[in-house]
Simulated assay, not measured.
Amino acid sequence: MIIYPSLTEPVKMGVTAPSSGLHMEQHSLLEEAIYRMEQKGYEVVIGQTCWTEYKAKSAPAKIRAMELNTMLQADSIQLIFPPWGGELLIEILEHIEFDQIKPKWLLGYSDISVLLLAITLKTGIATAHGTNLIDLRGPMSDPTTAMWEKVLFTKKGEEVIQYPSEKYQERWQHDYPTEWIFHLTEPTKWKTISNSPMFIKGRLLGGCIDVIRHLIGTGYGDVQHFQKEIIQNEPIIWYLENCQLNVTDLRRSLVQMKLAGWFNNCSGILFGRSEANDTIYDYHVLDVYMELAEELAIPIAYDIDCGHMPPQLTFVNGAHAEVRVYNSGSIIKQQFI
């Protein structure tokens, strides 16, 4: 059974950096984001790890884990919202007290997806893959990004619907922020490998494939246990996004996931947009998707609003979902059941 956290206003938000923190010259980015959250009525508790960054991490693993454990176990904190991702969150997993976690929302993406997936797989607590806190520092949010609040305020037994964005951001321009932070210039179009309509149902799981692949073979990536004991053998819909992998590394990673049984009883896969996916010789990312679809005999959609080319949907790990990808209109409905 999936455990869905519940938000009750006023919401106390914990901000900690289980992966990367901020260098001093970046502090204003987080200060602006916190200001926006306080304007919305959130009470914000800020951890010390947010303000430091050294050797590709905010702090040593045990210190990051200690601060995170404190927030995970605090009854008063309803939402944990890291500033952004990073590189080495996986170092803290062995120090997380999973059996002491109080149900609460965790929201983020990139390296944070390692923590999200591990918590849902081990505990059955739903977690949310979506925007970074830093990306909410503007005075406005585009409609796709802004859905994070509606999704997290959805109660058990309710459902929430999201649609494709109108436009997406092709490249980051950190030195030229807009009111929305992003530069949404390119028309969004969700696509299917078959070029035909797609409709799938299942429980959502996913994240950034660059980092969640490293959970394979560990006690933090036991998908078979999750499927059998927590969702009673319901099919899984995987959503995956690629930050930095070229196509052959992506292919190796997907084959490893397949061999590890992660795609057993999978009803379909959704791939996010990516600036990576570099072609190797004549081997293209579409070849990867087509090969996987043929091997698994499942539908695959791509260029979904997910990952490092914003904006992105808020996917809830563990939620029951219905996904429709049509030329005339696409939709994802998540049910908290």
Rank of each mutant, 00 (worst) to 15 (best):
G268V: 02
G221E: 14
D282E: 10
T49M: 02
G206A: 12
G41Y: 06
M147N: 09
L115G: 01
I46P: 04
P60G: 08
L240E: 15
L286I: 14
D278W: 11
L79F: 12
K191A: 03
T8N: 14
L117F: 08
K201G: 13
E229D: 01
I34G: 04
S6A: 11
P139T: 11
I34E: 09
A301F: 04
C50I: 05
I101Y: 02
L245W: 11
T123I: 01
E87H: 08
L29F: 14
L121V: 06
Y239D: 10
S6V: 11
L184W: 00
K122M: 12
E9W: 10
D303M: 04
V160T: 06
W172H: 13
W148M: 14
I209N: 01
W238H: 14
L72K: 06
T8V: 15
K150F: 02
V323K: 02
H95Q: 09
M37E: 10
S274Y: 03
A74F: 03
A293T: 09
K156H: 10
I46V: 15
L121W: 00
E322K: 04
C266M: 01
Q232A: 14
V11R: 11
N265T: 10
A319L: 09
T52M: 03
G219W: 04
E158Y: 08
Q224A: 15
N132S: 15
E186H: 13
K333I: 07
N327I: 00
I161K: 13
P177N: 00
K55D: 15
D305T: 02
D282S: 08
Q39I: 06
G85N: 05
F199N: 12
Q227M: 15
G124Q: 04
V288H: 07
V11Y: 07
C306A: 14
E166A: 14
W190F: 00
V44E: 03
S19L: 02
T120V: 09
L88T: 12
E234F: 11
Q256A: 15
I101E: 03
K155C: 08
K102G: 05
A126E: 10
Y289P: 07
S194R: 05
F153T: 09
E43K: 15
L107D: 12
L152Q: 13
A61E: 10
T144W: 12
V223E: 13
R273G: 00
M140H: 07
S20T: 02
T248G: 03
S267Y: 07
N265Q: 12
L133D: 10
G272R: 01
K201E: 15
A297C: 07
K167H: 13
D287A: 10
L259M: 11
H284K: 15
L296P: 06
D111M: 09
K156G: 09
I337P: 02
L72H: 08
D142L: 01
A59D: 10
V45P: 00
D142F: 01
H225V: 01
E149G: 08
C208N: 15
